[in-house]
Computed example of a mutant assay.
Amino acid sequence: MSEEFAAGGDSPADAAAEMQAFVDRHGYLSWLGVTVEAVEPGRIVMSVPYEEKLVNPDPDGTPVVHGGIAATLVDTASGFALRTTFEDPAEAALTTTDLNVSYLRPATGDLRAEAEVVRAGGSMGVTEVTVTSERPDDGEEATEVAVGRASYRLFRGETA
């Protein structure tokens, strides 16, 4: 992990703490229990713990996390990863312009998203995200449950 974070020189731990504070103030993200696990320039790792309030009703009794939770992680992790490309990530202005999520298999445990910036230009940014889920029932390691790509309008030096 890089010792430098963006242009401000904050440590990755400081950046993660600042981003976690934003999540904690955000009604929906805090309700989901989103945790910022790691931050590097152009990359972020976030997670959401498994909770019964997040599962779909399933006729066969297997609790499956609602797909919207994975989609939220793709969108949120993308925006946070792109924030790291701004001089002041805490003051970054950006908005989602396109979001694509492909579901690979049901999520049955905690979710973890790793977002990587593909490109962050002057006005547009693109990310790729992998979402994994723990599989507590069978003792297997985490497995990919969704992949996504997001595009964002970046407002560098202007307001959204």
Rank of each mutant, 00 (worst) to 15 (best):
S30V: 00
E40L: 05
D138K: 01
E52D: 14
E158Q: 14
R83L: 03
N56E: 13
V129S: 06
R149G: 11
A81Y: 02
D75R: 02
F86G: 06
Y103R: 09
G8H: 05
E52R: 04
R156W: 13
S123R: 14
V126L: 07
S102H: 12
P136M: 10
V64T: 12
E40Y: 01
G68C: 08
V65H: 01
F86H: 10
D137Y: 11
W31S: 03
L32R: 05
A17R: 15
W31M: 09
T76W: 00
R156S: 08
L94I: 03
H66Q: 14
A6L: 00
R135E: 14
E18Q: 12
G122Y: 05
V145A: 05
V117S: 11
S47V: 06
P59F: 03
R156E: 08
E3C: 00
R135K: 13
G109F: 07
T72K: 00
M1W: 03
T127M: 11
E4G: 05
E128A: 14
S123T: 14
G148H: 07
R153E: 09
V64E: 04
A38V: 09
T127C: 13
P106E: 11
V101Y: 04
N100V: 12
A17M: 12
V129Q: 03
A113R: 10
T127W: 07
I69H: 09
G125N: 09
A21G: 09
R156P: 06
A92T: 08
A7Y: 00
S102P: 00
G139D: 13
G121L: 11
S102V: 06
T76S: 11
T127H: 08
P106Q: 09
S123P: 00
G68L: 10
W31G: 00
T108D: 12
G27D: 08
A7Q: 10
V145L: 10
G8Q: 01
A90N: 03
P57Y: 14
A71I: 09
S78Q: 04
V34L: 15
G61T: 09
E116S: 13
V55G: 04
D98P: 00
R149E: 14
F80I: 15
V55C: 15
P63C: 10
V131C: 13
E4H: 10
E116V: 14
M46S: 01
R43W: 02
G9W: 12
V74P: 00
A77H: 04
A6K: 02
E134V: 06
V45S: 01
G157W: 12
E4F: 02
D98E: 15
H26N: 15
L111D: 02
G61F: 03
E114K: 15
L29D: 11
Y50P: 01
D58I: 02
P136I: 09
N100H: 14
T62C: 06
A7C: 00
R156N: 08
P41V: 13
V39T: 04
G33E: 01
Y50D: 03
V45R: 04
E3A: 12
P136E: 06
S47W: 06
G148R: 07
G27E: 08
D88I: 04
E37Y: 05
G125E: 09
R43M: 07
T130C: 04
M19K: 04
A70Y: 02
P59V: 13
P106F: 08
D98C: 03
L111E: 02
A92V: 06
S102E: 05
G157Q: 09
